[in-house]
């Protein structure tokens, strides 16, 4: 199928493997090698630390809230964009993509400027006793900002590819809008939706910059797993830092494996 001489092929393939091994493979190996450097006992000991467990819990809660909210709005946005033709659609798509091109630090900063003590709504909030910055709501808001495009971005090309004929048939047979979505659209997009949710979740659990700005780094209270990794690392507690990091790396593996499985499923459907 190709005309490149064997020698060229071998050199290029070898180069590709070398680049990937040095750039991506080695860092991954490092995470697990460092985490297990002092053996399994030490590994599990550092994971069962009380502060580590509370970081894991906070990460799970944050991901649960922000992913479910983004799931609902991602589906709604994808429906609006894929099923109708209207002016300004590509502009709307650009706006949905906006969080991809904003630095995570800025994503955190905007919420500090809104709800922090010096922020637009800061003084008003102080009276109510509701804490947003340096507390869970701020962490969730920053995470939602960063993960905003994931579900919609995954669904839009899929739903556009599938067209609107199925839905039109369902509606003309008397189905309501919601029935059409639940019985016709959802079964068609379920794998893409699942993949979008996985990606969104991976980013939500791993977000560092945005959460770092709004969290306040209160040990055992407002530290998510990535923030806890930073603290342990800066305290030269490398084994514990890499142990927590290895959990996040495993999450990345699970996400990518699921992606491969879903793609395989799509190809063999």
């Amino acid at each position: 199928m190709n005309r490149d001489p064997l020698s060229v092929r071998i050199v290029l393939i070898a180069l590709a493997f070398l680049i990937m091994a040095a750039l991506i493979g080695l860092p991954l190996v490092t995470v697990f090698a460092q985490a297990l450097a002092k053996g399994w006992d030490e590994y599990f000991l550092s994971l069962s630390d009380r502060v580590t467990l509370s970081a894991i819990k906070l990460t799970l809660i944050t991901a649960l809230i922000s992913v479910s909210v983004n799931l609902v709005f991602g589906v709604i946005a994808a429906w609006a964009i894929a099923k109708y033709e209207f002016k300004g659609k590509s502009f709307l798509l650009t706006l949905i993509d906006l969080p991809f091109s904003v630095s995570p630090v800025i994503a955190g900063l905007v919420f500090v400027l809104l709800f922090g003590l010096q922020g637009w709504f800061g003084p008003a909030l102080q009276g109510t006793g509701l804490k947003i910055i340096f507390a869970l709501p701020g962490i969730v808001l920053a995470t939602m900002f960063v993960t905003f495009p994931f579900v919609a971005r995954e669904l839009i090309p899929l739903m556009q590819e599938q067209g609107t004929e199925d839905e039109e048939a369902a509606v003309s047979l008397g189905a309501s809008g919601f029935q059409t979505f639940w019985r016709v659209t959802l079964p068609n997009i379920k794998w893409g939706l699942l993949y979008g949710v996985l990606l969104c979740n991976a980013r939500a659990m791993g977000e560092f910059g945005a959460v770092s700005v709004v969290s306040g780094h209160i040990r055992g209270k407002t530290n998510t797993m990535p923030l806890h990794v930073e603290i342990l690392y800066n305290e030269y507690n490398f084994t514990a830092a890499f142990a927590v990091a290895s959990l996040l790396a495993l999450l990345a593996f699970v996400t990518l494996t699921a992606q491969s499985l879903l793609e395989w499923k799509k190809a063999h459907a």
Partner: peptide, 19 residues
């Protein structure tokens, strides 16, 4: 090799940083 390409997308940045 193809699956490995996506790792920087999926790996949390702090993990990549310390590694």
């Amino acid at each position: 090799l193809s699956a490995m390409v996506d790792i920087p997308f999926a790996l949390p940045t702090a993990v990549a940083g310390i590694a």
